[in-house]
Simulated assay, not measured.
Amino acid sequence: MTTDRSVIVDSLGVGIATGTYGASFGAISATSGLSVLQTCLLSLLVFTGASQFAFVGVIASGGNPFAGAFTAILLGSRNMFYGVSIAPKLGLDARSRFASAHLVIDESTAMAVTRETQRQARLGFYWTGLSIFVLWNLFTFLGALAGNAIGDPRTYGLDAAVGAAFLGLLWPRLATWQGRMVALIGSAVALGLVPFTSAGMPIIIGGAVAVLIGMLWGSRKPS
Results as ranks from 00 to 15, higher is better:
residue 87 A to N: 11
residue 11 S to M: 09
residue 57 G to N: 08
residue 120 Q to A: 10
residue 25 F to L: 07
residue 135 L to K: 04
residue 150 I to N: 02
residue 155 T to E: 14
residue 53 F to K: 00
residue 93 D to E: 04
residue 37 L to R: 10
residue 172 P to E: 10
residue 68 G to P: 05
residue 197 T to N: 05
residue 159 D to Y: 05
residue 77 S to C: 14
residue 74 L to Y: 00
residue 140 T to H: 03
residue 201 M to H: 11
residue 145 L to G: 13
residue 24 S to Y: 15
residue 175 A to G: 14
residue 32 S to G: 13
residue 175 A to R: 13
residue 97 R to M: 09
residue 52 Q to P: 07
residue 79 N to M: 09
residue 78 R to M: 02
residue 192 G to T: 06
residue 156 Y to I: 05
residue 62 G to P: 09
residue 151 G to C: 05
residue 199 A to N: 10
residue 114 T to F: 00
residue 197 T to F: 12
residue 13 G to C: 03
residue 11 S to R: 04
residue 185 I to M: 05
residue 60 A to K: 04
residue 190 A to T: 08
residue 174 L to E: 02
residue 144 A to C: 04
residue 30 A to H: 03
residue 57 G to T: 11
residue 163 G to C: 12
residue 206 G to V: 10
residue 40 C to P: 03
residue 68 G to L: 06
residue 78 R to A: 03
residue 170 L to G: 04
residue 7 V to F: 02
residue 217 W to F: 14
residue 194 V to E: 10
residue 175 A to Q: 14
residue 195 P to M: 11
residue 79 N to D: 04
residue 32 S to H: 03
residue 45 L to K: 10
residue 54 A to T: 14
residue 73 I to F: 15
residue 130 L to W: 11
residue 76 G to N: 15
residue 174 L to Y: 01
residue 145 L to V: 13
residue 23 A to Q: 01
residue 37 L to P: 03
residue 192 G to N: 04
residue 197 T to S: 14
residue 128 T to S: 08
residue 104 V to N: 02
residue 105 I to T: 08
residue 111 M to K: 07
residue 43 S to E: 01
residue 49 G to I: 02
residue 204 I to D: 11
residue 140 T to W: 06
residue 166 F to W: 08
residue 44 L to E: 00
residue 114 T to E: 02
residue 76 G to M: 13
residue 187 S to G: 15
residue 73 I to D: 03
residue 190 A to V: 10
residue 128 T to Q: 04
residue 7 V to A: 07
residue 67 A to L: 13
residue 196 F to Y: 15
residue 81 F to T: 06
residue 103 L to E: 00
residue 95 R to M: 08
residue 177 W to E: 08
residue 33 G to Y: 05
residue 142 L to Y: 06
residue 8 I to V: 14
residue 222 P to L: 14
residue 93 D to C: 04
residue 26 G to P: 01
residue 112 A to T: 00
residue 141 F to P: 10
residue 184 L to A: 15
residue 114 T to K: 12
residue 79 N to A: 12
residue 22 G to D: 01
residue 166 F to K: 02
residue 72 A to G: 07
residue 181 M to D: 03
residue 213 I to H: 08
residue 192 G to S: 05
residue 15 G to P: 02
residue 102 H to E: 07
residue 212 L to E: 09
residue 134 V to I: 15
residue 209 V to K: 08
residue 94 A to V: 13
residue 189 V to M: 03
residue 202 P to Y: 09
residue 204 I to H: 05
residue 162 V to L: 11
residue 8 I to M: 08
residue 60 A to G: 11
residue 28 I to T: 02
residue 168 G to V: 10
residue 203 I to H: 04
residue 202 P to F: 09
residue 60 A to S: 15
residue 155 T to S: 13
residue 100 S to C: 07
residue 213 I to Y: 10
residue 19 G to H: 09
residue 2 T to S: 11
residue 200 G to W: 01
residue 117 T to V: 05
residue 184 L to R: 09
residue 85 S to C: 08
residue 21 Y to K: 07
residue 82 Y to F: 12
residue 1 M to C: 13
residue 174 L to C: 06
residue 162 V to T: 12
residue 106 D to G: 07
residue 101 A to E: 03
residue 220 R to P: 00
residue 115 R to H: 07
residue 4 D to P: 09
residue 41 L to K: 05
